[in-house]
Every structure is written in C-alpha cells, then in structure tokens.
Nucleic acid binder design. Sequence first.
DNA 1: CGGGTTCTTGACCGAACGGTCAAGAGATCC
DNA 2: GGATCTCTTGACCGTTCGGTCAAGAACCCG
Lengths: 204, 204
Amino acid sequence: MGRKLTPRGEQRRNELLAFATERFATNGYHPTSVAELVDGLGVGKGVFYWYFDSKEELFMEILREGERDLRRAQWEAMGDETDPVQRLALGIRSSMEWWAAHGDLYVLIEFARTEASFAPGIRKGEKVALSDTQKLVQEAMDSGAIPDGNPVIISQAVLGVSSVLARTQMLGRSRPPAEVADEVIDFCWHGLLGTARLDAKRSA
Amino acid sequence: MGRKLTPRGEQRRNELLAFATERFATNGYHPTSVAELVDGLGVGKGVFYWYFDSKEELFMEILREGERDLRRAQWEAMGDETDPVQRLALGIRSSMEWWAAHGDLYVLIEFARTEASFAPGIRKGEKVALSDTQKLVQEAMDSGAIPDGNPVIISQAVLGVSSVLARTQMLGRSRPPAEVADEVIDFCWHGLLGTARLDAKRSA
DNA sequence: CGGGTTCTTGACCGAACGGTCAAGAGATCC
DNA sequence: GGATCTCTTGACCGTTCGGTCAAGAACCCG
C-alpha cells in the first residue's frame, strides 16, 4: 500500500498482520473473513482497508515479511563461517529454529503454493532458497569435501528433508529444533546406508 | 452419499470427479465454484447434488480415491519381493510413476493439509504411508542391511525426499519418473557425503 | 485554541456462493 | 401404454463475502 504511518498506525498494522497470520494458519485463508479479523480485534471494518488494499494484499504481505525474516536469520547464523559444509549445517539449524518460532508461516506457504494467485510468489522465494543452498553444495564439491553429483537435486533433497522433519517432528510433536536439526543433518550427510552415525554431530 | 447408480450414472459421477480434480488443482478448491463445475460440463446444477451431498464431500471423495489408488499401486509394484531395501526402492519407484500420472492430486493433498476441515483425513493417510515405510526400515535394520537408527525419522526423511523431488523435478520439470526415482534412491541411500554414487542403481 | 492529518466507525452495496426443489425427460420393465 | 425409477433442468433462496464511504473521533503542531 505504501501509506505513511505514525507509530500508532504501525502498531495497528502489526496487530492486523499478527492476528491474520494466526487465523489464516488455524482456519485457512478463504474461510477466514475480513469481518472475522476486525471483529477479533474489536475494530471497525474500515480499519482493515485503511492499512491494506485487499485481503489478498494482506496475505502476500505476510508471506513477504516471513520470507525476508527467515533469510535474514539464516544469513546471520552463518556469520563468518567459511567451510561450505559447515555453512550448510548452520543454515539448517537456523532454519529449524526459525520455523519453530514461526510455525504458522509453514502452513501459510503450503497453502499459497496451491492457489494460482499466490503460487508464483512462492516459487520465486523457493528459487532463492534453492540458489543459496546450491551455491554451498557446488562449493563443497569443488573443494572435494563432498563427491560430485547434481547440486540442484542434492539441494532440493536437503531442503525437502528439512521441511518434512520440521513439519512432522517439530511442529507436529513439539520436539526441540536443535535435536531435529541434528537428525536432518545426520540423514542428509550419510543417508540410510551410512555408517558414521554415532559420534556427536553437533557443530562447534 | 451411497446412492445406487446405473452405468450411465456412474459415468456422470466420474466425469464430475475428474473435472473437479482438474479445476481444484489448477484454480484452488475455494475459488472453484459448484456453478463453474456444472457449467464446464454443460449440465444443470441439480446434477451435482444428485451425485454428491456437498462440495466438501466431493473433495473428500477425490482425496479418498486418490490415496486408495496410490496405495494399491505401491502394493502391486512391490509384488513378491522379499528384501526390505529392495521393497523400499520399488515403493519409491511406483510412487513416482503414480504421482507423474496424478499430479493434480499432489496439489490437492497439499491444500487439504492447510485447512482444518480436511487436515485430519490427510494426517490419517500420511500415518498409513509412514507406517508402511517404517516397517520396511525396521526390518532392514533388524537384518543388518542398514545401520540402526530411528526408523520414524528415516522413513519421514525418505518420504520427504520423494515428495519434494516429485514436485520440483517431475511435476515442475516434467522429467521422467524413473530418473527422478533413481535420484531419490541415490540420495536417500548414501546422503551427500556418500561415495558409491557412480554404479548403476537401477534395480533388477 | 484552531486547523490539518491520521485513524476509526459501521451501515451499506452488489456479487457470488452453496444448496434446494418442483417439474419433467429418459430409460426400463411388465 | 402406463407405472416406476433414475437422472436432469434451472430458477430460486438465504447468506455471506470483499469492499466502499460519508461521517466523525483522536491526535499533533503551531
């Protein structure tokens, strides 16, 4: 929208974003009406349309802010580590921590992928995540740290394992993100035939 | 609904199921109206409600039939193979073939997970898939074919890799299912640090 | 205090939705 | 040919939806 907001307005906007995120994740995007959002916050309907052009724009804003924040968290976590395999591990751990704190976004992104109006935006975000991962994998291959292979496939597989275990183990069973991250790394590094499984994998 | 149908009625019902599957997957469940479905088939609205109690019931029927058919395909593919690791590979290959032929269902299941009214049914189906996989992994561990580990985690990881590569490589890039299945197996068996990567992995 | 801006209200709107139903067409069997 | 059952029609219904807007309250600054 691009309206200039006072601190008070900024706060209202954040209230709307937070409440909508929770409702959309719990009840679904379509079944959650704008009326339900403003009623839940105890304000008039005009408030909603003061801060957002449409329900659709609000939703895209939630997705955009979420993706931005996740990427920032990953970048911060990797810090000045230089070894690509270690960087990958740090990225996985920080993603897991982030998803643990923002479980609602997980559901929202899954939904967004299933509808024509939101899918393109999601695909763009996933391309960025893939490209980030792919660079690390390629670098690790070049340095001989991991054997040659198709870096795209490997990156997608790593992201897939992270994603599914985040959903089933962490969001579904409330297990601590650090533990789940260890399991992701363990599987991704060695696969199910691998043997070096018993030593401590926790990095640094 | 349990209405008894003549062959003609059976065919109409299947037309509705097929058309709705395509529309839901392409455009989303909520944005696709019952009116759009019957108009697309060139029939009156009453036809829809002759065969289904509600739009929701139709959708659940699509999911139910899909899951049943996938499971049947897997069971058929595994045939009389006895080695658990080989059975796992056969299961992965047949799933990939099935998803290639039923890409619409992929999107539908992803959506169904995101909404309170459909999520329980999906979770039940996923529990079955997990349990099937888990049994094979456990068996392989008991026989020493793969090292000990948490069979739940490993099974979910394998299913996750299958799922993400099915989506990105097969449905997204139209690559042949057999190739993608090979890549899934390769990654799951050895991980990204594994070395035995160059021999032919194709089974039998 | 006055004047301008930011924010809020809630009645209202047209459109679209899921679903109903009385009426009738087509097939089938005796 | 009539009785019966399966299937089809489409106008119609009540409800809810996303979105609008004239009016006014709250806040800020000179």
